[in-house]
Structure formats: C-alpha cells, structure tokens
C-alpha cells in the first residue's frame, strides 16, 4: 500500500543524503579552494577553517600570476572569451545546419536516410584521439589549424549529431496531421516548417542547443591539439597553472569556478527543458 513506515523514511533520507554528498563534495571543495592560497590548500590535514582571499580571482582577472619563481603572464580572460565565442558560434552553426536536417530526417523517409542519420551519430562513437591525428594533418595542409574557423568546424563533430538526433525526435513527436492541416489550409511546406514545426519543437531545439553548448564548452582535446595559446578555450588554458614551480591549485580552482559558472547558470535556468530533451532524445533516437 502507499503508506511508508518511519524506518523506511529515515533509510531513504540517509541514502539520498549520501548520494548528494558524493556528487556535491568535489564542487563544494573546489569552491572553497578558490578562496584559499596554495599554502592553505596543501596543509595536511586539510582544514575547512581558513581566512578567505580573493587573490586567486584577482590574479586571473589581471592576468598576472605570482608564483614563488616570479610573475607569469596568463591569458585566462582571453581563454574565457575564446570559450564563449567558440561554443556560441559552433552551436549556432549546428542549429542552422542541424535543425533543417533533423526535420528532413523526421519527415522524409528516403532511401538510405536511416544510414545517413546513423553515420552522423557514429561520429560520436569514435574516441576523439582517433580522428585527431589525420585531422591535424589535413588542417595543416588546408591552413585551418590554429584558426577559429577550423575549430568551429571540428566542433561540429560534437554539436551536430547531438542536435540532429535530439531535434529529430521532437519533430517526429509532432503529429504529421497537424502539418498536413496547415498545408491543406493553403500554406507552402516552408511556411509550415516555420510556423508549425519550428515553434512546436522549440523546447526540444532549446534543450539540444544547451546540451551542445555544454559539450562544446567542456571540450579539451580538439582545442589542445588544433589551437595555439591565443585561440585556446578555458579548458586548455587551465594547463597554464601547472607551472615549473608547482601546480597553482588556488588559481585552478578559481578558474574552474569561473569557467563553470556560465554553463551552470544556463543549465539551472533551463533544467526542465534539458532533462526532457535528454530523455526524449534517448527514447526516440
């Protein structure tokens, strides 16, 4: 029956708390670290009682990293800007290409359409390192290495399949009759796509875009190999904190907090869409 015993409730509470603790601990710890100096961080045993400092954030924003061996220039803010630019442009391009493609795959079953859709998805199966070597060579021949265009192009490997498959599921969920009704009412197929299909798949497109953004933002290995310092995103830029005189844990933590903030804010804002989009894509795909 529906009623639960008190014992069961207590057990459930403890179990849930453990899970939350397990997943939240690294984030909380990083957050705390970002307000500590390297010395406090490396104290053994670690302590949660410390005098907070903003020096890590100051160093990141001014671009001057002071270590025991001297002052280093870091380009963190530039990296952050690169991340924003690369992720936003990549997702925008993916949406422009992926949404119409998803519509075509959802509505028009032509010979080989399933195969093409699957091939696009299979880009996500291969480990990035596998494609990276030949890609580096191509890019050098084509003069695309170390350019924004080249990076955005490679990022399509990440974003496009994701958007295509999630949005396709959403389009398939729209009853074909609704679109037929609009056609029969005297509107062209393009008007039907714009006025009916796009608005109805709106939440799905938003969710797919958001997911693609997160994946693009978190990408590390493509940018590491294909971009030099001034085009690198934060994920790669954080490597600069591993200096000859030691690892700057405090700054790394602050950098992580700063770089996570935009995606976290975005994800929290669109949480509902995100979960819906993920599960739908999973079921329908």
């Amino acid at each position: 029956m529906e009623t639960t015993s008190p014992l069961e409730r207590i057990f459930r509470f403890v179990a849930l708390s453990l899970v939350v603790l397990f997943f939240m601990f690294p984030i909380v710890w990083i957050f705390l670290m970002s307000f500590q100096t390297n010395e406090t961080i490396l104290t053994i045993p670690p302590t949660i009682v410390f005098s907070p400092t903003l020096s890590n954030y100051a160093a990141l924003i001014t671009g001057k990293l002071t270590t025991s061996a001297g002052t280093l220039d870091i380009a963190f803010m530039r990296n952050l800007m690169n991340s924003v630019f690369l992720s936003v442009t990549s997702v925008a391009l993916s949406l422009v290409l992926g949404v119409p493609a998803a519509y075509a795959f959802a509505r028009h079953k032509f010979r080989g359409s399933e195969d093409i859709a699957f091939t696009l998805l299979s880009f996500r199966f291969a480990p990035p390192l596998l494609v990276l070597l030949p890609l580096t060579q191509y890019f050098q021949w084509l003069g695309l290495s170390d350019t924004y265009v080249g990076l955005i192009w490679v990022y399509q490997l990440i974003c496009l399949p994701l958007i295509l498959w999630i949005v396709r599921g959403y389009f398939e969920d729209i009853s074909a009759d609704v679109e037929y009704a609009y056609r029969i009412a005297g509107h062209s197929w393009f008007a039907t796509f714009r006025k009916i299909a796009l608005p109805l798949a709106g939440p799905g497109i938003a969710a797919a875009g958001l997911l693609a953004f997160i994946f693009a933002w978190n990408n590390f290995v493509f940018a590491l190999v294909l971009a030099s310092a001034d085009k690198q995103p934060v994920t790669v830029g954080a490597l600069a904190f591993v200096t000859s005189s030691g690892i700057q844990y405090g700054q790394i933590a602050a950098a992580i907090v700063l770089s996570v903030t935009p995606t976290l804010a975005l994800a929290l804002y669109a949480q509902r869409y995100l979960v819906e989009g993920l599960s739908l894509g999973a079921v329908k795909g």
Binding site: D177, A181, R183, I184, S188
Partner: peptide, 11 residues
C-alpha cells in the same frame, strides 16, 4: 501540391 487544391479537411 496540397496548398493549391482548395480543399477543407477535418481530422
């Protein structure tokens, strides 16, 4: 095409 046939339809 459907939009040029001048038909009314209920589903």
């Amino acid at each position: 095409e459907a939009e040029h046939r001048g038909i009314g339809m209920a589903f």
